[in-house]
Lab assay of single mutants.
Amino acid sequence: MNGTEGPNFYVPFSNATGVVRSPFEYPQYYLAEPWQFSMLAAYMFLLIVLGFPINFLTLYVTVQHKKLRTPLNYILLNLAVADLFMVLGGFTSTLYTSLHGYFVFGPTGCNLEGFFATLGGEIALWSLVVLAIERYVVVCKPMSNFRFGENHAIMGVAFTWVMALACAAPPLAGWSRYIPEGLQCSCGIDYYTLKPEVNNESFVIYMFVVHFTIPMIIIFFCYGQLVFTVKEAAAQQQESATTQKAEKEVTRMVIIMVIAFLICWVPYASVAFYIFTHQGSNFGPIFMTIPAFFAKSAAIYNPVIYIMMNKQFRNCMLTTICCGKNPLGDDEASATVSKTETSQVAPA
């Protein structure tokens, strides 16, 4: 074996020389240089400094401006809540542990950190699934009389939490487990061992099928149909120019969110899948650390995309920050905001 397995950890380093120690008790400087741990800490600090204000501001601005409380925005706000879970429940602890060179909070802290990181990532993924379905129903109109309303949005939010908990909670109940990963300063689901005592193999298969592959299939199907429908409608001029423009802008925003999600999470999922299907193979701690920490940047891109591509939200945010006056001169009362007929989201 090219790694060292303990009762509640797996260190990707052979203990042939006897240097491996528990990542809950000793610094892991035999895995990497101390400066590399410091770089990880600096990166986590950057994500906290950027991630908390922008996600909190997204929630605060929506509470302050009633016009932003539209059904589709409920799902987008759900993304902000998920990102805050990741920032507060995961990033802060990882910053602290990186500074110490090992996971100082012990197995219980590892469970909590892994739970919040998994929960936030899964809420984001299933929120994108709900957004894809909403775009498909609104634009492709498989149900001609359907209107995406507040009740549908609330059910969509509830669905994302149920599915996220169905992925994040089982390791706390004994189906699989959370262990330190990479440089042993952050925790995630155990992809490294089969661990029959906790039926780890069945859980990892379940997670990859139900909580990654199926959502991706739904998302790609919905947007494949959507692109075809938008092109067909444009060719036949079935909708008014204003409605077409608004629907295209909202669709473009959501598609960019999906692409950003894939850029952040597919490398992590791919490496995790490789590790799981190549048990005992030779790989270093950096092999998993880089995609794991890169995936954490997902906490800042959704609100950035939303702010950049949604003029109505951008104006409301500037008005809130600048104490009631928009410095760009777009007065809220007089600004013309095009809303789609069904989803009521302003185009950029």
Rank of each mutant, 00 (worst) to 15 (best):
E181K: 05
V87D: 02
P347L: 13
G101E: 08
V209M: 12
G89D: 04
Q28H: 00
G182S: 03
V210F: 11
M216L: 10
L40R: 00
V104I: 15
N73S: 12
M216R: 00
M207R: 08
T342M: 15
L125R: 11
P267L: 03
A295V: 13
C167Y: 06
Q344P: 10
C140S: 13
P180T: 06
C185R: 05
C187G: 01
G51A: 12
P23H: 07
S186P: 05
G188E: 03
R252H: 11
A298D: 11
M163T: 11
R135P: 05
P180A: 03
N315K: 15
G106R: 06
M207K: 14
T58M: 09
T92I: 14
A169P: 01
A299T: 10
N78I: 01
P171Q: 07
Y178C: 05
A346P: 15
F220L: 13
K296M: 11
T340M: 12
P171E: 01
T17M: 04
T4K: 07
C222R: 06
I214N: 09
Y178D: 01
C110R: 06
G188R: 04
T320N: 12
M253I: 14
P53R: 02
P23L: 02
E150K: 10
C167R: 07
T94I: 09
G284S: 15
T193M: 08
P347Q: 12
F52Y: 09
G51R: 05
T97I: 09
K296E: 08
R21C: 14
S297R: 02
G174S: 10
R147C: 13
W161R: 06
L79P: 08
S186W: 08
W126L: 09
R252P: 10
G106W: 06
A292E: 08
A164V: 10
Q184P: 00
C110S: 00
G101V: 07
P215T: 05
A333V: 12
A164E: 04
V20G: 00
H211P: 01
L47R: 02
V137M: 11
P171L: 03
A299S: 12
I305V: 11
C110Y: 03
P171S: 03
H211R: 04
M216K: 09
L46R: 00
F220C: 13
V345L: 14
G90V: 11
P267R: 00
P170R: 04
E122G: 07
Y191C: 10
P170H: 05
P347T: 15
F56Y: 09
C110F: 01
P180S: 03
L328P: 11
G182V: 02
R135Y: 02
L57R: 02
G51V: 09
K311E: 10
G114V: 02
P347S: 14
G18D: 06
D190G: 05
C167W: 03
I179F: 01
S127F: 04
T58R: 08
N55K: 07
P347C: 13
S270R: 04
Y60H: 14
G114D: 06
G90D: 10
T289P: 01
G109R: 08
M39R: 01
F45L: 09
V345M: 13
E341K: 12
R135L: 07
T62N: 15
S343C: 14
A117G: 14
S176F: 03
C187Y: 01
V104F: 13
P347A: 15
L88P: 07
D190Y: 04
P215L: 05
P23A: 00
V345G: 14
N15S: 04
P12R: 00
R135W: 06
Q344R: 11
T94S: 15
R135G: 08
K296N: 12
Y178N: 02
R69H: 13
P347R: 15
V87L: 14
D190N: 04
L131P: 07
M44T: 08
